[in-house]
């Protein structure tokens, strides 16, 4: 194998196990240097390709699968078109929002909305909570919850670089998502709106609080309730 062949092969497949290629690398310093550079690039590419996966992807799939797979052979087309429509509208809204803002903290409403969409099944979930891990997170994040009215779900979630306590309470217009985000500081109150949801993010004693419900939901009422029921220690 000559240098040209080696370089072409390594460009196509940096992880090649071709014996002749390995042999050439051992004998040719400049090709070995080219290989090292290629592998450095490969590490960067791997990092770029590995986008974040929604929390609980596997368990959501299993839950939905076992709940639905008996009766949903024809439902897919409808579901997928709805998903496309919803995400396109979200995309358009976010695109506009991004133009106005630009800074990282102004993008928080986008992350919050995306989190709600990522975990959409939680809104209708009847799966049991995990009190142990929830209590642990609450303790570590210096939060205390004794009783939440109309609570349907509560759990701990990864959110951006930190954690959040993710709750769903029954509101007047439907399920309402509440995120306690101890690591997300906001200076002032922000509103969230897309074709389906409406909500707010507002400063909390430490971090911030997001409340997102269906369009007709009286969000302030739920926010007021949560502020009464959660203690930021």
């Amino acid at each position: 194998m000559n240098c040209l062949e080696f370089r072409r092969l390594v460009t196509i497949d940096p992880r090649t196990r071709d014996k002749e290629a390995l042999e050439h690398r051992r004998q040719c310093a400049s090709c070995d240097a080219m290989y090292q550079r290629t592998m450095a690039t490969e590490t960067l590419l791997e990092r770029a390709v590995n986008v974040g996966v929604p929390n609980n992807l596997g368990s959501n799939i299993l839950a939905r699968h076992y709940a639905e797979h008996t009766s949903r052979t024809r439902a897919w087309k409808r579901i997928s078109l709805n998903a496309i429509a919803a995400s396109l509208i979200l995309a358009a809204g976010v695109g506009l929002g991004m133009k106005f803002s630009g800074s990282a903290s102004n993008a928080l409403p986008y992350y919050v909305l995306q989190h709600v969409y990522d975990e959409l099944p939680l809104l209708t979930s009847t799966r049991p909570m995990d009190p142990a891990s929830l209590q642990k997170t609450l303790r570590e994040e210096h939060l205390k919850i004794s009783h939440i009215e109309n609570l349907k779900y509560a759990g701990a979630c990864a959110f951006r670089n930190g954690r959040s306590v993710h709750m769903v309470v029954q509101g007047e217009a439907g399920p309402v998502t509440v995120l306690l985000m101890p690591e997300e500081t906001v200076k002032k109150r922000m509103t969230i709106s897309d074709p389906r949801f409406t909500g707010i993010i507002s400063p909390a004693p430490h971090g911030s609080l997001a409340v997102i419900g269906e369009k007709q939901e009286p969000i302030e009422k739920v926010e007021h309730q949560i502020r009464q029921e959660v203690q930021w220690l």
């Binding site: 590995n50 929604p54 992807l57 596997g58 997928s80 995309a91 990522d118």
Partner: peptide, 28 residues
């Protein structure tokens, strides 16, 4: 495999909720 399938799908369709639906359908 769900995580790898999701990543692959999201790169091709550029849409996270659609990617999740696709992974769900794939497993179905």
């Amino acid at each position: 495999w769900s995580a790898d399938l999701f990543r692959y799908a999201v790169w091709l369709c550029r849409d996270r909720s659609l990617a999740e639906e696709l992974v769900q359908e794939t497993f179905l």
